[in-house]
Amino acid sequence: MIETSICQIVFYVFALLAILFAICVVGSRNPVNSAMNMALSFGCVAAILFGLGAQFLGIVQIIVYAGAILVLFLFVVMMLDLKDEERNTGSMRSAAVGTTIAAILAGLITSISLSLPGATEISCPMAAICDNIGELAPGAEATQATPTPGYGGSLPALSPAAAAKAVQPDISDAEAAKATSMQDIRLLGQTLYTQYNIAFVILGFALLSGTVGAVALARKIRKD
């Protein structure tokens, strides 16, 4: 019981901090302050992922976003030596654009969470995954978990078995139980290269075209 309560406290503390730092990113005038707040926010998101048992995703969050992309942001901000921005208030157009983008993002996140298995029966997708853990207990019959009304606020660590069940709802319990011995990296790899293989390859090509474009821009143009 102690473990779950610690998990909950850690989750809520880091979620709150992530939101606070994200607000600071938008709110602070100095671009370097913004960038550093963004780094802290990424760190908090990584901590949440760690708390959910997705260690690989958490560490990749730190390596890719905090360790590389944001450092490049900082690099550019410092190179351009941006001054504190003037407080710009009252532009209807920018407000409208911002609201539209935020609404699209919120819609995307909602649709993804609703597409998780069991999300429509129970009020929280994470709770659905918790119920799957109960189902996977050795010797337990594969009965439909009774949907608990309302989200009780329990967020246990995501076990690989439950995660396997979440990404591949059609696999049998035996296969999912076998997945408990798998690490989350293997699980992620399997999902990416089987279920989402085409999307993955397309994304790879998109990144490749970006790289080729960057090389073409950086190439010295011969004068002849």
């Binding site: 260690q55 360790g67 450092v71 900082l74 989350d184």
Partner: peptide
């Protein structure tokens, strides 16, 4: 005893780049 040993080291020691950059700036 994490299951992401080398990645943890790369990620965390990679963060020291912030120290160097911010010191310079």
């Amino acid at each position: 005893n994490l299951d992401i040993g080398p990645l943890w080291i790369f990620a965390i020691s990679g963060l020291s780049v912030y120290g160097l950059t911010l010191a310079g700036w």
